Simulated assay, not measured.
Amino acid sequence: MATIKEVAELAGVSVATVSRVLNNSDSVLPTTRDKVLEAMEQLQYQPNLLARHLRCSETKLILVIIPSIANLFFSEVVKGMQDAARTYGYNILLCATENDAERLQVYINLLKSRQADGAIFVSTIIDDKTLTEIADSYPVVQCSEYKEGLNISYVTIDNRLAAYHGVQHLIKIGRRRIAFINGREDHLSTRLRLEGYKQALSDYKIEYCEELVRNGLYGIKSGHRIMRQLLDLKEPPDGVLASSDMMAIGAIKVAKQMGFQVPGDIAVVSFDNTRSASIFEPSITSIAQPMYDLGQCSVEILIKKINSQDKYEEKLVLEHELVIRQSTIG
């Protein structure tokens, strides 16, 4: 790859002159500019845009830090971010941590070294102290998951109410022994959804049973493993709320393998409403999170923070929707 020094030598000018051409300076004579541009074309020189942006203290780059690129939920959220960022003349740098603390620190260091204008943390496992320190110095937005009690912008849904609506639907179709395959214990959404689950049971005079609540990691394997445990109980559940579509798919697969009918014997409701929920057989009743909007709004808030001279924080709670399909009414 050609360097700026090589361009200068071929054009017969100084490196400083090439730099002025790259920055559209009016101080360069037209004939000199043409020589530089011709040399750049001959050498197929590609300017280091990131370095130029850094010198101008603006990169037009947003870090998006997510746990994984495999989850369809994150894919839809990121699509919303990409579209919004493009509208405002920004690009995103997607950083998947795989829940690895060292990898997360590498990405945080990119922000600290001013290689990005701000960061969006999407369901990222990070301690309160570290997040607060970052948000005190750089524009930051939390997406989906957020830290309670910290004055840091976030975009999310009402997880407590969403879980309530899922359980309420199962109760209204006649289910009374309802299990909950919940998410990671270190996520705020896990606690809020459990509260919503318990509240729905209480409101409909159904006793809470601790053995019906289990925690997993949002994937098919977790759903499969936990559902097998639930179906091995002396009195298995007749309804299940799962904290992701992938968990629900794993749960339904093992239920069918063990001879249970869905929804005949066990009705299932999930969270997210990714494409998998509609194409799986049976199609899954799912609590739709506005994934695209979560991403879009996160970028819009971040750009406001980047452009604001004052401390700007916004807490945005988007609407969810219960999409009813075959796993509860088939």
Score class of each variant (00 low, 15 high):
53 H>I: 10
54 L>R: 14
54 L>Q: 15
54 L>D: 07
55 R>K: 13
55 R>I: 06
56 C>W: 12
56 C>M: 15
57 S>V: 05
58 E>Y: 07
58 E>H: 15
59 T>S: 15
59 T>H: 11
60 K>R: 15
61 L>A: 14
62 I>P: 13
63 L>P: 03
63 L>I: 04
65 I>S: 06
65 I>Q: 04
66 I>D: 06
67 P>Q: 01
67 P>T: 05
67 P>F: 06
67 P>H: 06
68 S>C: 00
69 I>Q: 04
69 I>L: 10
72 L>N: 02
75 S>R: 00
76 E>D: 00
76 E>Y: 00
77 V>L: 07
78 V>I: 11
78 V>S: 01
78 V>P: 02
79 K>G: 00
80 G>V: 01
81 M>W: 05
81 M>H: 08
81 M>F: 06
81 M>L: 06
82 Q>V: 05
83 D>I: 02
83 D>W: 01
84 A>F: 02
84 A>H: 00
84 A>P: 00
85 A>F: 03
85 A>H: 04
85 A>P: 08
86 R>T: 05
86 R>F: 03
87 T>F: 02
88 Y>A: 12
89 G>K: 14
91 N>D: 14
91 N>Y: 14
92 I>G: 07
93 L>H: 02
95 C>A: 12
97 T>E: 03
97 T>M: 01
98 E>K: 12
99 N>H: 09
99 N>V: 02
100 D>P: 09
100 D>R: 11
100 D>F: 08
100 D>G: 09
102 E>Q: 07
103 R>G: 02
103 R>C: 06
103 R>P: 05
103 R>H: 03
106 V>A: 06
106 V>M: 10
108 I>T: 07
110 L>M: 10
110 L>A: 00
110 L>P: 00
111 L>P: 12
112 K>T: 05
113 S>E: 13
113 S>D: 07
114 R>W: 03
114 R>Q: 14
114 R>C: 03
115 Q>Y: 04
117 D>K: 08
118 G>Y: 13
119 A>F: 13
119 A>C: 13
121 F>G: 13
123 S>G: 11
123 S>N: 12
123 S>A: 15
124 T>M: 13
126 I>D: 08
128 D>T: 14
128 D>L: 11
129 K>W: 01
129 K>G: 01
130 T>Q: 10
130 T>H: 03
131 L>E: 08
132 T>I: 09
132 T>P: 05
133 E>N: 13
134 I>V: 15
136 D>W: 07
139 P>S: 11
139 P>Y: 14
140 V>P: 13
140 V>F: 11
141 V>S: 08
143 C>N: 10
143 C>G: 11
145 E>D: 12
145 E>M: 11
145 E>H: 10
146 Y>T: 05
149 G>D: 04
149 G>V: 04
149 G>C: 06
149 G>K: 04
150 L>P: 13
150 L>A: 04
151 N>L: 12
151 N>R: 12
152 I>L: 10
152 I>Y: 08
154 Y>W: 08
154 Y>L: 05
155 V>N: 06
157 I>D: 01
157 I>T: 13
157 I>Y: 01
158 D>G: 01
159 N>A: 05
